[in-house]
């Protein structure tokens, strides 16, 4: 009567494949979340083409371009961090992850200056200047603040996720043989980049 149970993962609470699939399933929901917002944008823009065009002149193309380059670069460093850990070089991996976090901070600082400029001009929903705008331009700024705000929130979450991974690599919990958490944080970070790839032309480059 010797009942001996063997867990499917041999008692190891780690399953890289399932973990990765779980992360991707979550990313699909994120794509649909932002996808829905892009549909709202598409409808309102087609109904208010001239207003959207006028309102978009309030954004600084060069700040948007700078932030695009910052995010693309951070996507490269996080991808390289995964390669580094796979090759058994945790120090290099940690360095590349700090570079990614630095890029996240640069992105947020640029966003801060962009948003501050809008606040100074009273363009945030509810402010004086905003209230006097025609409906189409109001819609543009509502969508601008909501979509870049939600994206900014994702930048913050992704940055925190990567900081957690850095400490797990330092303590050895994430290592050459168990790096799925690092890969998942990388996938999340690439998604943040992917969303920005669409936000940038739709808000900054429509003129």
């Amino acid at each position: 009567m010797n009942h001996h149970f063997t867990l499917p993962n041999s008692g190891h609470n780690y399953d890289a494949k399932a973990s990765k699939m779980g992360m991707w399933l979550f990313l699909y929901t994120e794509l649909i979340l932002f996808g829905g917002l892009f549909l709202v944008y598409m409808v309102y823009r087609s109904l208010n083409q001239d207003a959207f065009l006028l309102a978009s002149f309030n954004l600084n193309v060069w700040m948007g371009t700078a932030n695009t380059i910052v995010l693309l670069t951070s996507s490269m460093t996080v991808a390289m961090a995964i390669s580094a850990l796979q090759k058994g070089d945790p120090k290099k991996s940690i360095f590349l992850l700090w570079m990614t976090i630095l890029a996240a901070l640069v992105f947020l600082v640029v966003k801060y200056f962009e948003w501050s400029a809008k606040f100074e001009h009273g363009l945030f929903p509810g402010m004086d200047h905003f209230n006097q705008l025609p409906n189409g331009e109001k819609l543009y700024f509502n969508l601008y603040f909501f979509m870049t705000g939600l994206h900014g929130l994702h930048v913050i979450v992704g940055g925190i996720f990567i900081v957690i991974v850095v400490f797990k690599i330092k303590s050895g919990k994430v290592n050459k043989d168990r790096y799925q958490l690092l890969e998942n944080s990388g996938l999340y970070w690439h998604l943040v980049d992917l969303i920005w790839i669409y936000l940038f032309p739709l808000f900054y480059l429509i003129h």
């Binding site: 190891h12 399953d15 490269m76 991808a79 390669s83 043989d177 168990r178």
Partner: peptide, 20 residues
């Protein structure tokens, strides 16, 4: 076998840089 279940492919730094 579970610990080795990671995909074998490691992308090179050069390929990441080229993508960038």
């Amino acid at each position: 076998s579970i610990e080795e279940s990671h995909s074998e492919h490691i992308t090179s730094y050069r390929e990441h840089f080229g993508t960038w």
